[in-house]
Each structure stands twice: as C-alpha cells, then as structure tokens.
Write a protein that binds this DNA or RNA. Structure first.
Length: 334
DNA sequence: AAGACGGGGCA
DNA sequence: TGCCCAGTCTT
C-alpha cells in the first residue's frame, strides 16, 4: 500500500464518518447536483441550502427551468449574488433540453455556460462517477499544506500544478467520495485560519504541519483594493406604489434587477428629510446610500433595494404616514 | 494575468 | 474592517 492509497483511504474513511448531511448529498440526479454546484460557487453552504431547496421545488427539472421567464429565475436567485450564474443556468437548461438529456461526459458538461473546470469535474465525478479531480478553494488549501507549498495559489502555473496534484491523488475508483472528502476536509478541518490539525485524518502526511507552516499557508496573491461609493436613492410614492427602474441588459452588473431611482434620474426632484441609511458591500466596492421604500411585486429586487425598503418599513412602523396631503419622502441607501 | 462580479459571516 | 467562500467570464 503506497502513500497515495493510504491518503485516499484515510481521507475517505474520515469523510464517511464525519460528513455533513447536506441536501444535495441525498440525490443522484445530475440536474440537482449541477444546480448545487453552481449555487456553491463562491458561496457558503449555509447560504445555499434554503435557495437550493426553494429553487428545486419550483424548477424540479431542466425542462421547467428552460421555459420559465428569466425574471422569475432571477427572483428565485435574488440575494444569493453573482446573478450571471442564474442566467447561465437557464441558458444551460435550454441547451440540455435541446440535447435531450443531461450531458454525461466531462467535456460536454464543461461546455455548458457557467461551468468551468471545477464545476465540470464536480458534476462529472459526483453525478457520473468519472475520474476528474476537483480543485476548489478548499482542495487548493489542503494540497498546499499537504505539500508545504508556499507558492501563490492564485497564480495560474501554481493552479495547474495543484490541479495535477489533485488528479494524481484522486481515487479513480471512488472519485465522488474522494472529491467530496477533500473539500469537506478543507471546509470543516483544514480551515483557512487555525486549522484543526488534531482532528485531521491525514495529519501524519502533512508536510506543513511537520514544518510548522500550517498557519501561514496557503499563500494568496494580492487582493484588489476596495473603493468606496456613496449613493442616495429616492422614494417616490403614489399610494401603495413606489417608483423603480430596471437595469438594462447592457449593464455590467445586476442586469434586469429593479432599483430605486437616484436623484439625477429625476430632474427637478426636491428631496425631503432622509429616512435612514444603510451600508452594503459588493466584492470590490463599498456602497453608501440613503434609501426608502415600501412593498413590491414579483420582480428581482437587488439586495440594496431590499435593504432600502426595510429601512422605510421600519420608519413607518414608528411613524405612520398621516392622512393629509401626499408627502415627499426620500430614502438613502448606504 | 488581472478584474469584475454579490453577499454574508466571522476573527 | 479584511478575508474567505464547493469559481467563471471578460478584458
């Protein structure tokens, strides 16, 4: 028994005894597994679970997803982030329907929009038992520590090396178990900070632990600087309706989402007292806005807009709008 | 090879 | 506040 099979066996045995009970681990449906992998891209398990269950109830098959209105798909995704995932998901569902069945090879899965190397390997291995190793953030961290590799794990050449290493370690007879075990180890034991090495099934083989560098790894290259933005959004209200605008399909972000107007969109608008403020973070941006608002319909609402509306709602609970003449109100989102 | 893309949770 | 998360796509 060589060291690779020792690694595989220790890892998989640990996984089978310690794995979390997650909804997508209870299915073998490639569609459901694919959906879970898309939702899990850069998104924590805890955030995904309720979305996954709701989405699958509403769209249990690719066919249903294919024929839905894009706005409804986006509504189901609202709050989860990275909305191009939802658009690509539906695009892919239409391709799957045109093909007649879910693609069954790595290359065919990889060709779907929104599916990159990681997701293709995950679906191919978990849904079809194909021997493709996954390299996500968890796996990269585990492998960098295992080999005491101080290279920048974001750099492309290093990425390729880690991918090759994962493929070398992969248990080709049990690719689904192996891949999930490696990721589970990263997610629950081989943590980014303060890894729980005492609980690690492969600690004996970990060169970083042996060298004492486990808390310094992995090395990640320069993060891009955040920049700060302040916005004011306005609540223009007619009885129970609020004026909103929809982002166009040529917008770089949040395409098709509804938002509150900003003052420059309403020439001559006179602003009333601010209703409140909130803070909101987007990957490389910090937005500050004043906001206000009320109810809305079945449309994709961006999270900033939801927060803005929540501010208004709280305001009006404390201070109900009087009968008198219509008031001009304003909300600011931060 | 960089940046952009959402959002939330945690030290 | 900064980092990280079952990444992908576009410059």
């Amino acid at each position: 028994m060589n060291s690779i099979s020792a690694f595989q066996n220790a890892l998989i045995r640990w996984y089978e005894r310690n794995k979390r009970d997650l909804p997508w681990r209870r299915t073998v449906d490639p569609y459901a597994i694919w959906l879970s992998e898309i939702m899990l891209q850069q998104t924590r398990v805890a955030a995904v679970i309720p979305y996954y269950e709701r989405f699958l109830r509403r769209f249990p098959t690719p066919a249903g997803l294919a024929k839905a209105a894009e706005a409804e798909v986006l509504s189901m995704w609202a709050g989860l982030g990275y909305y191009s995932r939802a658009r690509n998901l539906q695009k892919a569902a239409r391709e799957i329907q045109a093909q007649g069945s879910f693609p069954k090879s790595y290359d065919a899965i990889r060709a779907l929009p929104g599916v990159g190397d990681y997701t293709a390997a995950a679906v191919a291995s978990i849904a079809f038992g194909l021997p493709h190793a996954v390299l996500d953030g968890n796996a990269a961290r585990v492998l960098a520590r295992l080999d005491d590799d101080g290279s920048d794990i974001k750099a492309s050449p290093v990425r390729r090396r880690l991918q090759a290493r994962a493929q070398e370690l992969l248990d080709r007879k049990r690719p689904s178990l192996f891949n999930q075990a490696l990721m589970e180890l990263g997610a629950t034991v081989c943590l980014p900070r303060q890894p729980l090495c005492a609980a690690c099934p492969v600690a004996k083989m970990c060169l970083a632990l042996e060298a004492g560098t486990h808390n310094e790894l992995p090395v990640k290259g320069g993060q891009t600087a955040v920049h700060y933005v302040e916005r004011i959004v306005v609540i223009v209200r007619k009885r129970e309706s609020i004026l909103m605008w929809r982002r166009g399909q040529d917008e770089p972000r949040l395409k098709g989402f509804w938002e509150l107007p900003e003052p420059h969109m309403l020439p001559g608008v006179r602003l009333a007292e601010p209703l409140g403020e909130f803070r909101h973070s987007i990957t490389n941006h910090r937005w500050f806005r004043w906001v206000s608002l009320k109810e809305n319909a079945r449309i994709p609402l961006s999270t900033t807009t939801r927060k803005a509306l929540a501010v208004l709602r709280r305001t009006e609970e404390k201070n109900p709008p009087g009968k008198g003449p219509p008031q001009r109100r304003r909300v600011v989102v931060d």
